[in-house]
Nucleic acid binder design. Structure first.
Lengths: 134, 134
DNA sequence: ACGCATTTGATGACTTTGCATTAAATGCAG
DNA sequence: CTGCATTTAATGCAAAGTCATCAAATGCGT
């Protein structure tokens, strides 16, 4: 049994699990408390606004957001219900739908983006800290 | 707006999201198909067997496994239902419970551990690959 | 000893997610 | 054009997670 050989691999994975969990939870908490957004909700808005093309099929998004197609569909539905995005059908291929941020969506994102970046900076910095102790 | 300054931070986070999602999904799929275990289930068994102390309070585990206390409680319940761990009360402090792997649990873990390591090795290697292209 | 705050794990209610399926739209062979 | 496979997004349902709450056990001041 090559248990020792796998050690570094397993540690790397566990470190990642740990950092991921801490970061995700912190984002969830801060974004929710301060802006009424879930982490997934923000992530979608962030992508949507970054790639500012008016054309945005749902399926294109599913590559960026790491969710199943159905979860993504419901996520969009939630954001639509909250008035942060709109769903519109495409004239050329009426199977596709366009998802675009509303004005409210852009505003909410603009408001939340600094919180998002701050949390990232903080958690990642705290993670590197132990390496520089003393 | 210091958008550019945050760029590397955001990219790092997104890379992590991506790698984490791919790895977790691969583990979920492989462990489930080949050994009837979820990723969380394996993770718990793995920790449980690694720290072989007979004493293992639930709360000690919640630090390792990145789950809420309630989720952990239900995860243990599932594993118990499947006969992979046993819950036993502690004589000294009867609020605590011990969770220990059964023989079946040890066997299942032994069977699954190589799959787990292989998936880690594969996904992580694939992730580094792009850096060495050509 | 007693009362009360604290700790610990379990449970109810709800949310989010994934899988499987469905419905609609399109593409394409014949 | 017709019929059928394919693609795309939505939906029913069950699994799994979180938060808030609960009951039991303990600790501790008086």
């Amino acid at each position: 049994m090559a248990a020792d050989a796998d050690r570094p691999l397993v540690c790397e994975w566990r470190d990642m699990l740990s950092l991921h969990a801490r970061t995700w939870c912190a984002l969830e908490r801060e974004l929710n408390e301060r802006h009424g957004l879930g982490a997934s909700e923000f992530e979608l808005l962030d992508r949507l606004i970054e790639t500012d093309k008016p054309k945005c099929r749902v399926q294109e998004l599913s590559g960026d957001i790491h969710l199943s197609q159905s979860a993504l569909s419901r996520l969009i539905a939630r954001l639509e219900r909250d008035g942060l995005v709109t769903r519109g059908m495409c004239a050329e291929d009426r199977r596709n739908i366009f998802v675009s941020p509303t004005e409210a969506g852009r505003a909410r994102h603009a408001e939340a983006v600094s919180t998002h970046r701050a949390v990232l900076a903080e958690v990642f910095a705290a993670n590197r800290q132990p390496l520089i102790v003393r």
